[in-house]
Amino acid sequence: MKIGVLALQGDFAEHISMLKKIGVETAEVRLPKHLESLDGLIMPGGESTTIGKLAVAYDLMKPLQEFGKSHAIWGTCAGAIFLSKDIGRDQPLLGLMDIKVQRNAFGRQVDSFETDLEIVELFKATGTEHPYHAVFIRAPIIESVHGKAKVLSQLEDGRIVAAQEGHLLATSFHPELTDDTRFHEYFISLAS
């Protein structure tokens, strides 16, 4: 099992250290050739505009779209934005997941927050029941899911913060900034 982490910009090193913690081999992905021999890909938090522009500049858009047809991809925050079909503004998107996302949906940095989430699928898959502590930073929300995409987790007010479509996974929050490896384990199960 070898998982790539898109290393154009953002907190890719944090994802790599989480993957190492659960014994998974990793690789940094900056160019199309780096996708070879990977079983899955994580797209980290960062600035989605920066990541999108660099993906276009280094011809990664098509290869990433092809990769996503047959491999697991997980986007956290900026990565979730990049995976989506629609964000209501003009910037490069992979359009792999049938979800509509709104950037910076909670406001500015002073509105960034931490909270506990109930994520039934995750608890089932990992055989655990304690709440998932989630860190949101200038976070997007998933406004709506369409087609085969389904909701994985919502805030108490109903806003969607995690979604899944087959082997594709999107979270508004940052499991890589916590010590809780359950989401990474869940993703590895999708990539297997």
Binding site: A7, L8, Q9, G10, D11, F12, A13, E14, G45, G46, E47, T50, C77, A78, Q109, V110, D111, S112, F113, E114, T115, D116, P131, V135, I137, R138, H174, L177
Partner: peptide, 22 residues
């Protein structure tokens, strides 16, 4: 649980999102 804002994790975390950037 109440959502918490302005925590050390949040403050450090935004800088982590800027890594590898200009």
């Amino acid at each position: 649980m109440e959502a918490k804002t302005g925590t050390w994790t949040e403050k450090k975390g935004l800088a982590q999102m800027l890594k590898g950037g200009v």
